[in-house]
Amino acid sequence: MSEAILRLRDAAFQYEDADARAVDGVSLDVAPGEFLAILGRNGSGKSTLARLLNALLIPSAGSVEVDGIEVSEQRAYDVRERCGMVFQNPDNQIVATVVEEDCAFGLENRGVPSKEIRRRVDEALREVGMLDRALASPSMLSGGQKQRIAIAGVLAMRPKIIVFDESTAMLDPVGRKDVFGLARRVNREEGVTVVWITHFMEEAVQADRVVVMDKGKIELEGTPREVFSNVTEVLSLGLDVPEMMKLSRDLRGAGLEIPLDVLTVDEMAEVLGKWQA
């Protein structure tokens, strides 16, 4: 594995009025170009972790390094430029009344010259397939389209990493697939490292690696196959596992020796089909 682009060492954070740490000693390396999914029930600390990666919060103990820069008050803007963030509520992260103006917001804040902003905004809007809506008002767009605009705004900054903090939680299945697909494409085609925080295990199974958090700590880590085959444990952490994994657990319980790590319908049909033959 090449040099990690995100490097956390015993990172911790405690909110002022809380009696426990929201993130409690997390150590994690993320490789450049990786698609990492973070799962965990509400209050498990995953959103706090996301905010540490973007210097919205500064670790109270341990360290967080983003592309070689240690997250601190002083370097906050350098960190944010390298690590963009897309939030959950599509409405509450759009600043401007015109799509392209919103897309330009980050670049304007960084003092990029107008001509360069124009070029990058158009490029980003084309990338997310919203160039034809550049002059539209965000209030006329669907939730999924609003999230595309939010992604374009981040892409225009040309970050190396994008953190998606439950960015599909408020969308319907069509919008969800759409936004997830876009994140995957940006990851594959542009080589942007993605940290994808979600409740939906059907998204997590498509990640390169899955981290499960609980009570501010990393509880499970590995490929989706490895993590989800711990059916009982994952369920007890308040999460879901793919239906096929539950099925193989049931079948094994009844004496049918199915492999534990069957993830998809096609795989299951394949396995059972072979048995029949």
């Binding site: 793919p242 239906e243 099925l247 319908v265 096609d266 049909a269 059972l272 089909g273 029949q276």
Partner: peptide, 16 residues
């Protein structure tokens, strides 16, 4: 469609 309904259809196609 629910995953298990999909599997049921796939298995029927395989003669289950």
């Amino acid at each position: 469609v629910p995953e298990c309904a999909k599997l049921a259809a796939a298995l029927r196609a395989r003669g289950f």
